[in-house]
Amino acid sequence: MNCFKVSHHLSAYLDSELTGSEMLAIRSHLGICPHCRAELESLKITKRVCAVEVPSATPGFEERLSEVVRSARQNGQAQAWQRYFSTSLSVAVACVIGLGVFTSYLFIKHTPAAPIKPVSPSSVAQSQPSLSKMHLVDNPAPNSGSTGQEVQQEREYLDGADPLSGPASAIAYADR
């Protein structure tokens, strides 16, 4: 090994981070080269200076650190619960809205377009025997006050809704 090559490996030599054969080659070069030996000594001093002890942290730092991490943990837990409850609340609100939309859909579906005739129990018995029918009996259409055109518009709106966008439209589709 020449001086150039040795000088590149001196830090790794100092840290014993070379292979056995490399260590031996450098050691034998150092035995004959005062220049590389001086270079190694100066690196040794640099390493020693770096190892000078650092000043201490301010008193109570350890306790403050534990406290900070503990409160970071509590904040994280509080956020998790908050997320859980806000998600549950959103789901509940969506369900209520969905139920409302579903009910009005059923109501609109079975409301006859104008002219509006009063529904008699016997005529209901002749039509489809479904849950929607019972619903119609409970909520007679004449009191709604909507015209045939309005009902048609509302129906088109429901038909055009995205089936995957929410529980309300999904129920409306399932009903058809």
Binding site: H8, S42, R48
Partner: peptide, 25 residues
């Protein structure tokens, strides 16, 4: 990186604090 870093540091200390170097030497 270690080798180049130490060489830089050595040069810096030798120029700014030669007394420190001599003491450690």
């Amino acid at each position: 990186r270690i080798h180049r870093g130490r060489k830089h540091l050595k040069a810096h200390l030798l120029s700014t604090a030669p007394a420190l170097y001599e003491r450690y030497c």
